[in-house]
Simulated scan of single mutants.
Amino acid sequence: MIRPRAFTVPCRIAIEQSAAHFHAHVELDGDLAVEPGDRVRVHGDPVRVPFGESAVFERTATVVRAGPLLRAWTRAVAYLGLTELYEVSFTSGSLR
């Protein structure tokens, strides 16, 4: 059996919580691409950012690469989930 490949990498977490922006982004060092099925776990204590502020934290993250079967399964499930967004109507004429 082929096991997923796991490794630890430094990362940067940028968090902002304001009226204009509400986001948390994780950037892995070395411009590592995260592919479908891969898992990323950021290590460290939970962080809180008060409303109206932003903060940047340096942490480490463990990346577990998905195997070929899990990667294919994730892509298939994502594609099928996308079809739920299609709106299909069998009525004659437009909806008002």
Rank of each mutant, 00 (worst) to 15 (best):
A14P: 03
T60D: 09
V56A: 01
T83F: 10
D45H: 13
T83A: 08
T74E: 10
A72L: 12
R5Y: 01
T91D: 11
V88H: 05
L32D: 09
Y79L: 03
V56P: 00
S94L: 11
E58C: 15
S92P: 13
E35C: 10
A76H: 10
A76R: 11
E16M: 09
E16F: 00
V47C: 04
A72T: 00
R71S: 02
R3T: 06
G93R: 13
L69W: 02
L85H: 13
T60H: 10
E58G: 12
F51S: 01
L32S: 05
L82A: 13
A14M: 06
V26F: 05
I15Y: 08
A61V: 09
V40N: 10
P4E: 02
S94E: 07
H25Q: 00
V9T: 11
E58W: 07
A20P: 02
V9F: 06
V34P: 06
F7T: 00
E58P: 04
V77M: 08
G81Q: 12
S89W: 15
E58N: 05
R5F: 01
D29K: 06
G37W: 00
S92W: 15
L28Q: 00
R48N: 04
A6H: 04
V47Y: 11
R96T: 13
R59H: 06
T8K: 00
L70A: 10
A19K: 10
E87V: 10
D31Q: 14
R41D: 02
S92L: 11
A33I: 12
V42G: 05
V47K: 13
L95R: 15
R65M: 05
T91W: 08
G30R: 06
V77A: 12
T62K: 06
V49M: 12
V88T: 14
R59C: 13
Q17P: 08
R71P: 02
A14E: 07
P4Q: 03
G67C: 00
R39D: 01
E35G: 12
P10N: 14
A19R: 15
T60V: 14
G37F: 07
V49F: 04
S92A: 00
R71I: 02
R39N: 11
T74Y: 05
P68N: 09
D31S: 08
R71G: 06
G30M: 04
M1S: 11
Y79G: 12
A76M: 07
R12K: 11
G37N: 07
V88W: 15
E27L: 12
V42C: 03
A33H: 11
R59W: 11
E84Q: 15
E58S: 02
V40T: 09
Y86Q: 08
L32A: 13
F51P: 00
L32F: 12
A19H: 03
G93M: 01
V26A: 13
V63W: 04
P10V: 14
L80V: 04
Y86W: 15
L85C: 14
F7V: 09
S89K: 12
V34F: 10
L85T: 15
T62H: 04
